[in-house]
Nucleic acid binder design. Structure first.
Lengths: 147, 147
DNA sequence: ATACTTATTGTAACAATTATAATCAAAGAA
DNA sequence: TTCTTTGATTATAATTGTTACAATAAGTAT
């Protein structure tokens, strides 16, 4: 699964004339196989043993390249730094208010909402995103133990 | 309408023991009557004629106070700074990819999605947010003219 | 090989936000 | 009232995520 995604992603890059460097390959691979919506710094730290001389700027540069190619989405929440999510099929995010963990879940597209919104506002809709906030099972358990 | 909201908000603050200073009153009033989801800097600039000596820190401090009291929500998008939205009844945001304008629209709560997500992930849900992206009527018109 | 383009690196700059310390204002107790 | 305490504001320094820039390195094509 991961391999298929990676191969597709590399094809997409190649077809748009973007050179595939070892750094780019590694960053992309990390985002795809990591299920954790990493920050730029997460990626930087995860790869520094493999690429000791890689600059943070390279991570940011390439995240921008990937974003422009439509391969990753940038997620900004209240906390300091952006998280990056590999674009596969439609899914939404469940975010724990206590520990910040992000869990994906799938739901059939909210076409009806998009249509209504478009009708009400006159916008041409391109996409939407949704986040649900709450407390994850682990934090719930912890909270009840603490009491 | 605005006045009612402001009075309610001040009551909420009073009931939680938060002192209502002239700055707080002005910031709250501005957020409520402004329909534009202002940034901290927008608020600071808008009030500097009224409070020439007010510090940016005061704006940030009080936005945090209001957020903790549940009066405002912080919205973070890709762009640099957070926007602040007075909490009234459930609504979502339509955002223009071209000019960044944010337009509210109302939609009956997405209870079904919340329930499914809760069931799938085991989270206790507290709330959700959704943004729809697209191109606003003004930018559409402009784009066609430019061609 | 040579020239040309593109990517990476290292570092400086920037901008939003937060932390800190000092001053100021309000509220309560004596 | 005056004193004391608490909380708010101010001004500024520090922090942090991100971007800009110039120099170097690596590919690509002629």
């Amino acid at each position: 699964m991961t391999e298929v995604h990676l191969r597709d992603a590399l094809d997409t890059l190649k077809s748009t004339g973007v050179r595939i460097t070892p750094q780019r390959h590694a960053i992309l691979e990390f985002i795809i196989q990591s299920m954790s919506h990493p920050t730029a710094d997460d990626i930087y730290k995860a790869l520094e043993s493999k690429f000791p001389s890689m600059s943070v700027a390279t991570v940011y540069n390439n995240l921008r390249v990937f974003r422009e190619a439509g391969l990753v989405k940038e997620l900004t929440y209240g906390d300091s730094s952006s998280r990056f999510d590999f674009v596969t099929n439609d899914h939404y995010h469940m975010i724990c208010d206590a520990c910040g963990k992000i869990v994906d879940f799938h739901y059939p597209g909210l076409d009806e909402v998009e249509h209504l919104a478009s009708h009400l506002t006159g916008f041409d809709v391109s996409y939407h995103r949704m986040e649900i906030y709450g407390v994850c099972p682990t934090c719930k358990e912890h909270a009840t133990k603490v009491q």
